[in-house]
């Protein structure tokens, strides 16, 4: 029997992206979601909207403009001093009210600390489905339903999750999973303003202070263009210095698989994969890494992947661009030397 959407839910139309920002800047994940949202909205033949909530002022309004430049047709805007810092209560109230009033069929948020906090609260308040950390989004046009895919537990598999007879269909996506769309400053859109019906006294949680990260030593994997990553195939923590040496020559960040992080060879911030960071580098060199799905989903959007592994049947070779079959401990020093020599020659040649 063919699925038929509840009559009452057919009124829900349009794709929304919650525009996350903190301290005056949009989180890139929101722009990435606009890129993906644009495609889905076009498939559905509906409009793409950004949802901007923040304190009154030019900065907040400029986020609407950025949303238009990145593909939105319109923005829902709530300006209110209570939205100065992110707090769960006012943001949940604002977003929930907007959804109830304007009825989107799809709502996306970034899977960040803010987005996950807000998405879980809004979905529960609206009593609708929420799919976490999706890596692929698509539409089943037959039944007008969102197909949200994410890795499934333990295996080399993905599962597709649907929210059939509930609206909106909600999903979160992590930073760097979707491509950043082109910024087109000729685009424009319309703003629909709304209000937050709350007073400060009714909000129980107060922000006392914000302590920014100093950012000095923290590895910035998600935004690294070149990454050299090592896995369990490196055998010993001492061997990991071969990874660091190549990274140094390339000006690259060092990444690792989960077993390596769990063994304490490198810090947690360097873990790439489902329960670590998602990266989108221009060059990703994977050494002694088998290519399990939980690692793959964190890095396979990289432009060029080189794999070094002594097992010619390692799954990593199924999706890498170049492979060298051999012992990492002998290949790595040679590769480091080859890069060094090549770059020196190229630099001389101008």
């Amino acid at each position: 029997k063919k699925f038929e959407l509840d009559e009452r839910l057919k009124a829900y139309k349009g794709v929304w992206v919650f525009i996350e920002h903190e301290r005056g800047a949009i989180h890139p994940v929101s722009l990435e979601l606009l890129g993906e949202g644009r495609k889905l909205a076009d498939m559905l033949g509906v409009e793409l909207a950004g949802v901007v909530m923040g304190p009154p002022g030019e900065t907040t309004r400029s986020f609407c403009q950025e949303a238009f430049y990145h593909g939105a047709d319109l923005c829902y805007l709530i300006e209110d001093p209570l939205l100065q810092d992110y707090r769960n209560e006012p943001y949940t109230k604002g977003l929930t009210d907007l959804v109830n009033k304007y009825q989107p069929e799809i709502l996306f948020l970034g899977a960040t600390t803010l987005g996950r906090d807000l998405a879980g609260s809004v979905a529960t308040t609206l009593k609708t489905g929420l799919t976490a950390d999706c890596t692929e989004l698509n539409i089943d046009l037959d039944v007008r339903s969102l197909l949200a895919s994410r890795p499934t537990f333990g295996g080399s598999l993905l599962c597709t999750i649907q929210t059939l007879n509930y609206r909106p269909q909600m999903a979160t996506v992590r930073p760097r999973v979707m491509a950043m769309p082109e910024r087109d400053a000729t685009r424009n859109g319309r703003i629909i303003e709304d209000t937050l019906s709350m007073i400060e006294d009714s909000i129980i949680t107060k922000v006392l202070e914000f302590i920014p990260d100093e950012m000095q030593d923290k590895p910035q994997l998600p935004f690294a263009d070149i990454i050299v990553a090592g896995g369990r195939g490196m055998k010993k923590p001492e061997n990991f210095k071969l990874i660091w040496e190549l990274a140094q020559v390339l000006g690259a960040e060092v990444g690792a698989t989960r077993p390596v992080v769990q063994a304490g060879w490198v810090e947690l911030d360097r873990q790439v994969g489902q329960s670590g960071k998602t990266v989108r580098s221009k060059l990703y060199i994977a050494v002694g890494i088998s290519g399990a799905i939980q690692h793959r989903v964190g890095m396979d959007a990289s432009d060029v992947i080189i794999a070094i592994n002594n097992d010619p049947n390692a799954p990593i070779f199924d999706f890498a661009h170049y492979g060298i079959v051999g012992n990492a401990m002998t290949i790595l020093p040679a590769l480091t030397e080859a890069f060094k020599a090549h770059l020196a020659t190229a630099r001389k040649a101008g």
Partner: peptide, 15 residues
């Protein structure tokens, strides 16, 4: 009581 349903399990598309 679960709005989400797993509709498909599949292997990642090979390059």
């Amino acid at each position: 009581g679960s709005p989400t349903v797993v509709s498909k399990v599949f292997a990642p598309t090979p390059r």
